[in-house]
Every structure is written in structure tokens, then in C-alpha cells.
Lab assay of single mutants.
Amino acid sequence: MEVRTIKVFTTVDNINLHTQVVDMSMTYGQQFGPTYLDGADVTKIKPHNSHEGKTFYVLPNDDTLRVEAFEYYHTTDPSFLGRYMSALNHTKKWKYPQVNGLTSIKWADNNCYLATALLTLQQIELKFNPPALQDAYYRARAGEAANFCALILAYCNKTVGELGDVRETMSYLFQHANLDSCKRVLNVVCKTCGQQQTTLKGVEAVMYMGTLSYEQFKKGVQIPCTCGKQATKYLVQQESPFVMMSAPPAQYELKHGTFTCASEYTGNYQCGHYKHITSKETLYCIDGALLTKSSEYKGPITDVFYKENSYTTTIK
């Protein structure tokens, strides 16, 4: 009895394709271990004539594949690729409408935090270190965002349907971005203890939790000093293409032309909904596939993004 075979390709990165001759009487799992086709788990399936010449994702289970996976995804987590594939199996079914010149995501599976993050990423200057993220990001900007969303979920250790947080998501993504040249110098002034300067680099240099107003941050924000008295913390120097200011959701007025974009969060910790506000020729609110415009805006804002380049204080 002759062994019926077909020729397929296996890959971990969709760049390096490895030619395989597979036995049609055995499952993919018996031949390769966990195997995925377009995100779908085909591990328990036997090869079919229609699979001839198709590319299958496999887990990096030998040295060659491990090197290829690390170079593309910059992670050695053995569960990463499987999590990416199972997320992709959902995100490829989502709709990605162009809204006001940006790629958004039609609401499904509690994905409003991903839509808000995706919209924000198209408006701030950011370059990702893992080629996987950078490639998928370019495709997302062009309207094909399924891979990018699935990668975000995998890097953030999230599953489809789980509630997510924009600030946490951005923080994970910033860790995989090139923020080497970003720098922030802060000064804390206390009447009792004097003053202390701190220099922050990388992710810490672009994120701040405690106030939404970048102007206020430049002037000074009140913080408790270690001595128990009130101290003032203010920005001395900022070198970065953008800054992200966050605070627990509270009524906040966004003035046209003073910011790049913002995240609105309605609801409580267990259950809520994100919308995205962007400042173009007027203010726009993007909620999944829905767009509304207004000249002014007041609502429960939790993150505001500002364009920056270089700032030095005039406070002496």
C-alpha cells in the first residue's frame, strides 16, 4: 500500500517557510505537534488534498525554529505562539472599519479597549522592536488589523473576551517599542525636605499616572512627601515624541487643539466601556464603527496623549 502524501510549508514567522512532505494517514499533531492554519487549530486533523502548498504555523520545537521565533517575536515564552494563534482565530472574524481616516474595530468580545489602543497607536510616533509587531502594525494602518490585535493580546497575556485596560495595554506595548531616546527629568520640591531631581528613561519617561493635564504637570502637581507634608512635583525636561497622561476616570474637559487623542471610560472596574476622542479640525468621538463630532467635550476621561518633541522648564 502506497503512502499518500502532500507537500506543505511549516513556519513560526510566515517569513521562513520549511518544506514538509506530510503523510495523509496521520494527523498534523502526530507529525508536527500543535499546528495552526489561519489561526485555526488543526492539530487533530489529517492532511487533505486542499492543504497542498498551504502554510501551517507550528510551535518552535527545534533550534532553527526557536531562533526564527525569537528573532521575529522577541520572546522565548513557549506558550506565546499558541496564544497568538488562538487569538487570531477570533480577531480574523472582527470587522476593521476605516473611521475618520483611522483603522478602528467594530465592537465584539469586549474589544473596546483594543480599538482605543489601536486608534491611539496610529496617532503617536512609535516604532516597535519585534519585527512581528512592526509588520502587523503597518498592515493594521492599511486596514488589516487582525494579526496586530492578536499579537497585542498575546504580548499582554490576554484572551479574547476578557476586559482590558488601555493604560495597561499601552504599557505592555511600550515595553516592546523603541523608547531608548526618551528621557524625563522631574523635580520634587518640599518646604521641609528641599528639592530632589529624578531622571527617568524609556517607558517611565512617557507615562504618568495622577493627572490628565500635561500643562498642569509642567506647572506642578501636589504629591505627598515622605515627611508627610505636601510637596510639588513638576516637569523639568521632556525628550520624547509623545507623552501619555493618565488618571482614574473623572469628568474632564478636553479643549480642541490642546491634545492629540484621549480615552474615555464609562462604567466601573468590573464592567465598563471605552471610547476614543481625537482632536482634528474639530473633536471626534470614535466608538467602534461609530463616529460623532463636537466642538467641545466633557466626560469621564482616563488617558490623554500629547505630541511632544523637546521641553525644558522655565521655572527657576
Rank of each mutant, 00 (worst) to 15 (best):
E2Y: 09
V3K: 14
R4E: 13
R4P: 13
T5E: 10
I6S: 06
I6R: 07
K7L: 11
V8C: 11
V8L: 10
F9H: 13
T10E: 05
T11M: 06
T11L: 05
T11V: 05
D13Y: 05
D13T: 10
N14V: 07
N14D: 10
N16Q: 08
N16G: 06
N16W: 06
L17H: 12
H18E: 12
H18G: 06
T19K: 11
T19G: 13
T19C: 11
T19P: 15
V22K: 07
D23W: 12
S25W: 10
M26N: 12
T27L: 09
Y28I: 05
Y28T: 06
Q30G: 12
Q30R: 09
Q31D: 07
F32N: 07
G33S: 04
G33P: 07
T35H: 00
T35N: 05
T35I: 13
Y36D: 03
Y36V: 05
Y36R: 05
L37I: 11
D38W: 09
A40W: 14
A40I: 13
D41C: 13
D41A: 14
D41T: 11
V42S: 08
V42R: 05
V42E: 05
T43S: 13
P47H: 01
H48L: 14
H48T: 15
N49E: 12
S50H: 11
H51K: 05
G53W: 11
G53E: 13
K54D: 11
T55R: 11
F56Y: 10
L59W: 11
L59C: 11
L59D: 12
P60H: 07
P60A: 11
N61F: 15
D63I: 05
T64A: 14
L65S: 11
R66W: 09
V67Q: 13
V67I: 13
E68D: 05
E68Y: 05
A69R: 03
F70W: 11
Y72E: 07
T75S: 14
T75M: 10
T76N: 09
T76W: 11
T76Q: 10
P78F: 08
S79D: 15
F80S: 03
F80N: 04
F80A: 02
R83G: 05
Y84N: 06
A87K: 06
A87M: 02
L88C: 05
L88Q: 06
L88S: 04
N89L: 10
N89C: 14
H90I: 12
H90F: 14
H90L: 13
K92A: 10
K92N: 09
K93N: 12
K93A: 11
W94L: 06
W94G: 04
W94S: 03
Y96M: 04
Y96W: 05
P97G: 06
Q98I: 13
V99P: 07
N100A: 12
N100I: 07
G101F: 03
G101Q: 06
L102E: 07
T103H: 07
S104P: 03
I105C: 05
I105P: 01
K106L: 10
K106M: 12
W107E: 03
W107M: 05
A108D: 07
D109G: 05
D109F: 04
D109A: 05
N110D: 04
N111V: 02
C112F: 00
C112L: 02
L114K: 01
L114A: 06
A115V: 05
L118P: 04
L119W: 03
T120A: 15
L121H: 01
Q122A: 03
Q122V: 03
Q123F: 03
Q123R: 05
Q123V: 07
Q123Y: 05
I124C: 04
I124P: 02
I124Y: 02
E125M: 04
K127V: 11
N129F: 04
N129M: 07
N129S: 10
P130E: 04
P131G: 06
L133E: 02
Q134K: 11
Y137S: 07
R139K: 14
R141V: 11
E144Q: 11
A145H: 02
A145E: 03
A146L: 02
N147S: 11
N147P: 12
F148K: 03
C149P: 04
L151P: 04
A154Q: 04
Y155E: 04
Y155N: 00
C156R: 01
C156L: 08
N157C: 06
T159H: 15
G161L: 00
E162Y: 02
L163I: 02
L163M: 11
G164L: 00
D165E: 15
D165A: 06
D165R: 00
R167M: 00
E168L: 08
T169F: 03
M170D: 04
S171T: 13
Y172P: 01
L173H: 06
F174S: 02
Q175C: 08
H176D: 05
A177H: 01
A177G: 05
A177S: 09
N178L: 06
L179T: 02
D180H: 10
C182G: 09
K183F: 11
R184S: 15
L186W: 11
L186S: 09
N187L: 11
V189Y: 10
K191R: 10
K191M: 11
T192V: 10
C193D: 02
G194T: 02
Q195C: 13
Q195H: 11
T198N: 10
T199Y: 07
L200D: 09
K201F: 12
K201A: 08
G202S: 04
G202E: 06
V203P: 15
V203H: 11
V203W: 14
V203T: 10
E204Q: 15
A205Q: 03
A205P: 02
A205E: 00
V206F: 02
V206M: 04
V206N: 00
V206T: 00
M207L: 07
M207N: 02
Y208I: 12
Y208T: 12
M209L: 12
G210I: 00
T211G: 08
S213N: 09
Y214R: 03
Y214Q: 05
F217N: 01
K218P: 01
K219W: 01
G220C: 01
V221C: 09
V221N: 01
I223R: 03
C225K: 01
C225H: 08
T226G: 14
K229S: 15
T232M: 13
T232A: 04
T232R: 09
K233M: 15
V236L: 08
Q238I: 01
Q238D: 02
Q238H: 05
E239A: 08
S240H: 01
P241W: 04
P241N: 07
F242I: 01
F242K: 01
F242H: 02
V243I: 11
V243N: 00
M244Y: 00
M244N: 01
M245E: 02
M245T: 01
A247M: 07
A247Q: 06
P249F: 00
Q251C: 13
Q251L: 12
Y252D: 00
E253F: 07
E253C: 07
E253H: 10
H256A: 13
G257N: 08
G257R: 05
G257M: 07
T258C: 08
F259G: 00
A262Y: 01
A262F: 00
A262W: 03
S263N: 14
S263G: 00
E264H: 04
E264A: 12
E264R: 00
Y265M: 01
Y265C: 02
G267E: 15
G267L: 07
N268I: 07
N268P: 15
Y269P: 15
Y269F: 12
Q270K: 14
Q270P: 02
C271D: 01
H273M: 01
H273K: 02
Y274T: 00
Y274W: 05
Y274V: 00
K275V: 14
H276L: 09
I277G: 02
T278C: 12
T278P: 00
S279T: 08
E281F: 00
E281P: 00
L283N: 00
Y284Q: 13
I286R: 00
I286K: 00
G288M: 03
G288V: 01
G288C: 00
A289T: 10
L290F: 13
T292C: 09
S294T: 13
S295F: 07
Y297R: 01
Y297G: 02
Y297S: 02
G299C: 05
T302A: 12
T302H: 00
D303E: 02
V304Y: 01
V304S: 01
F305Q: 00
K307M: 13
K307F: 09
E308P: 10
N309V: 14
N309Q: 15
N309M: 09
N309L: 09
Y311M: 10
Y311A: 09
T312D: 08
T312K: 07
T312I: 10
T313F: 14
T313L: 14
T314G: 15
I315N: 15
K316M: 15
